[in-house]
Design a binder for these strands. Structure first.
Length: 271
DNA sequence: ATGCGGACCTGTTAGC
DNA sequence: TGCTAACAGGTCCGCA
């Protein structure tokens, strides 16, 4: 479900409720997520004050003086602000109960998400250490894409979705960015000129930036911390539009499968 | 080093 | 109407 814009939307929605607040306790109902929630995590987090809620790629970093909780929403995760008394549902796997009486509840039907703890600099954590640049910050541009693509034969779409190259671009925004940059998703990454990579970097920034501004994309079930859907869905130009006219030229949008993931593109606009 | 396929898990929908 | 298969927004890991 969540790509960078959805995670950032979640972060922005939760930050005001978390930052400066003390965590009274952590209630774990289901430990088995992508990795088991560490047994000592509730003990380490209880009594701590949240100094900041940050994001790195699709990970949320909840910082405290004792260490940092890493949270990932996987494919189907979401987090909401509730009052602690609200009855939990079947897939509500853990709660962060605050002194204020609020409760940040994590829900994830498929359990591909994660809640982990690190007492050290989270940037050095094995899951974060190898991540590429943030697409909406300085350090990401066409030159870095071009440089990293040298000699590589992977399809540009898979390349773009590789978090070691750039973080935050998932299946929806990869198709959207390639359409805006007019690049065929099947092209070998190493065969694209610097100029085209610059267009692609710009398209990635544009798509993700607009999506963040609209609160992300809700296709089926994404909702922010307040339970609101994202409004970028309407801006999607190719994703989930197979057979419908390309909004630029009218050619029917094509669907294909790359590496077990759906890709959508316009065979006329994208070369 | 790179690239590919499988693995993790549940819910929803398309098709027979 | 009911069953089954395919598919869904992620990404790590092991193997060739």
């Amino acid at each position: 479900m969540p790509e960078l814009p959805e995670v950032e939307t979640t972060r922005r929605g939760l930050a005001p409720w978390l930052e400066g607040q003390r965590i009274e306790k952590v209630v774990v109902r289901q430990r088995q997520l992508r990795w088991p929630i560490p047994r000592d995590l509730p003990r380490r987090l209880a009594g701590q004050t949240v100094t900041a809620l940050d994001r790195r790629g699709k990970y949320l970093l909840m910082r405290t003086a004792a260490g940092t909780a890493l949270m990932h929403l996987g494919m189907s995760g979401s987090m909401r602000v509730l009052t602690a008394a609200t009855a939990p549902g079947r897939h509500d796997h853990f709660d962060l109960v605050l002194d204020s009486g609020r409760c940040i509840r994590y829900r994830d039907p498929r359990r591909f998400g994660a809640l982990l703890w690190t007492a050290r600099d989270p940037a050095c954590h094995r899951l974060l250490a190898g991540l590429g640049p943030e697409p909406l910050e300085a350090g990401f541009d066409g030159a870095c894409l071009h440089g990293r693509a040298r000699g590589r034969r992977v399809a540009i779409k898979a390349f773009l979705m590789n978090a070691a190259i750039v973080v935050g671009v998932g299946n929806i925004y990869a198709s959207e960015a390639l359409h805006r940059a007019r690049i065929d998703p099947r092209r070998a990454a190493g065969r694209l000129s610097l100029a085209r990579m610059q267009q692609l970097a710009e398209a990635v920034r544009e798509v993700l930036g607009e999506a963040v501004a609209l609160g992300g994309t809700t296709l089926r079930d994404f909702h922010d911390g307040q339970g609101e859907p994202g409004y970028f869905s309407r801006q999607l130009r190719v994703y989930d539009r197979a057979g419908k006219p390309c909004l630029a030229c009218g050619t029917p949008v094509r669907h294909l499968v790359q590496g077990q993931r759906s890709t959508y593109f316009c065979p006329t606009c994208q070369r």
